[in-house]
Design a protein around this nucleic acid. Structure first.
Length: 456
RNA sequence: GUGCUCGUAGUUCAACGGUAGAGCGCAGCCUUGUGGUGGCUGAUGUUGCGGGUUCGAAUCCCGUCGGGCACCCCA
């Protein structure tokens, strides 16, 4: 057989990894619905010209075309979507007449980007987005809400602590204008390199590439250094002595998000004025999230306020949203062994088969368990019980059911907990496993290796 | 797309230009139709692919395909 190479950037998980991913997806859905977000799905393809930002050609897009397209056939100009926000904006415009606003929706789908993959970066990956879109206007408090919902989700998952960092586009842009910058986007892009190349080289780039004076560059760097868990950043920014109306607006918005979110969930967000990223359609609050201890992998959740993404003739639908990078998060969790699952299969019980003639008796046990919502499977072959137990053990199935043998009808069915070795009489019409054993459990990996020895 | 680096068993990795190996995993047995550990036995490779140099290539050279990392950009 030809050797099959795995395709870089198109990750496929093993069963144990998928259990963890699915737990994250299930939890996301649960938290989102708990906060009243409805579920939507959009098609995987969009017209490429709708996905381009500011008219520039985006090389990240995978183009879709028919293999047998003829030369004279018009190119439909379709590409796979690279995020869920742009398609959602298009969806809103297309169905606006039939939708209720403000519209709260969550959307969990694959997206594609034609980049070169590396750690935590894929060509095909899953995002879990929430957005609120209003008609004409969107109340500011939703910018607080996004941070609260995402922080709730991240705190619910069995993962390391996440730092939700918030900044505001108006603040940064107003500040840059205030120090005399002409190209605020350019300043933003250079500031974003602070982590990688340090303040000295950023300062130099600000002068050469963004055309700032040394004093202005120094102030921009000083601004980026400000990071507070509360609204005290306002005074620190004021101390830099830059005056600008947009800056003032940004300052008050950001302090409202930070104080609002922390009132709801203490310690959930920090104001971090270095956060410059986000796509260029963001117009206000921007979010970014790092897993504490794994900052180098990049943000696992980001988003922001966008006022102009969905707009028709005269009609605007401003929105705010935040996205969880499910694939990136899962890849960190698996690579660093931060999260474990109690088993990689749904079955809580393996029903043993004594011999092929009595397989119907085993199937009957399974049926009665399933009727009561207990996931189970019947052993694939009537091997020696030792092998059947090992079959369960390998997969993490916690219980093996032994049907009564016809030859020895005085004995009833028994069930063995293969973790403890305990084996007791059981009746398929009323036996119930502990709640924890019904579904695979996903939990933070205990860091001591001694703990894992106990549960063989 | 640019640069760097690496491709050997299912997997993690060895092997100076000289007979391709080990750990883990897998299969069987010790083991009684009831699995942890232990012991014994066994199976598995076009050394990514193609060409070149050489008496001889996993090893050196060229090409190609694939992986990883960095840049770019971002979840």
């Amino acid at each position: 057989m030809a050797k099959i190479n795995r395709l870089s950037g198109f990750p496929e998980l093993l069963p144990s990894g998928r259990v963890i991913e699915q737990h994250i997806l299930d939890t996301a859905r649960e938290i989102f619905e708990l906060h009243g977000f409805l579920s939507l799905e959009t098609r995987s393809v969009e017209p490429i010209d709708h996905m381009q930002r500011n008219g520039e050609i985006d090389k990240e897009i995978y183009v879709l075309r028919r293999l047998h397209a003829t030369a004279d056939e018009a190119d439909p100009g379709l590409g796979l979507h690279f995020d869920l926000t742009v398609p959602f904006a298009r969806y809103v415009l297309e169905h606006a007449a039939l939708l209720e606003f403000p519209l709260r929706r969550y959307q969990i789908q694959k997206v594609w980007r034609g980049e070169r993959p590396q750690e935590g970066r894929f060509r095909e990956f899953t995002q879990a987005d929430i957005d609120v879109v209003g008609k004409d206007t969107l109340a500011f408090h939703h910018e607080v809400e996004m941070a609260v919902v995402m922080s709730t989700l991240l705190a619910t998952l069995p993962i390391p602590r996440a730092r939700l960092q918030v900044n505001n586009r108006k603040l940064a842009e107003g500040f840059y204008l205030g120090v005399g910058a002409a190209d605020t986007q350019g300043v933003l892009r250079v500031i974003d390199k602070l982590d990688k190349i340090g303040p000295d080289r950023v300062g130099a780039l600000l002068e050469t590439e963004a055309g700032l004076t040394p004093e202005a560059a120094a102030k921009c760097i000083a601004l980026a250094a400000i990071c507070t868990p509360d609204a005290t950043f306002v005074d620190q920014v004021r101390a830099l002595g830059v005056r600008n109306d947009l800056l003032d607006q940004g300052l008050s918005e950001l302090s409202a998000v930070v104080t609002g979110a922390n009132a709801e969930r203490p310690g959930s967000v920090v104001a971090d004025l270095r956060i410059a990223r986000g796509l260029d359609y963001y117009t206000g609050t921007v979010y970014e999230t790092q897993l504490v201890g794994f900052e180098s992998v990049g943000s696992i959740s980001s988003g922001g306020r966008y006022d102009n993404l969905a707009s028709d003739e005269g009609q605007r639908y401003p929105g705010v949203g935040i996205s969880l990078g499910v694939s990136r998060l899962v890849s960190i969790l698996l690579a660093k062994d931060l999260v474990s699952a109690s088993r990689a299969v749904p079955s809580a019980v393996l029903v043993a088969v004594t011999d092929e003639l009595s397989r119907p008796a085993s199937e009957s046990v399974a049926r009665r368990l399933r009727e009561r919502g207990i996931p189970c499977e019947v052993a694939p072959s009537a091997d020696k019980f030792g092998k059947q137990i090992r079959f369960a053990d390998r997969r993490g199935i916690p219980y093996v059911w032994f049907p009564a043998t016809a030859a020895d009808s005085t004995e009833g069915d028994t069930i063995k907990d293969i973790r403890s070795g305990d084996q007791v009489d059981a009746d398929a019409t009323n036996w119930q496993p502990p709640l924890d054993d019904i579904k695979p459990r996903v939990f933070a990996t205990p860091d001591s290796s001694a703990a894992s020895k106990e549960s063989w």
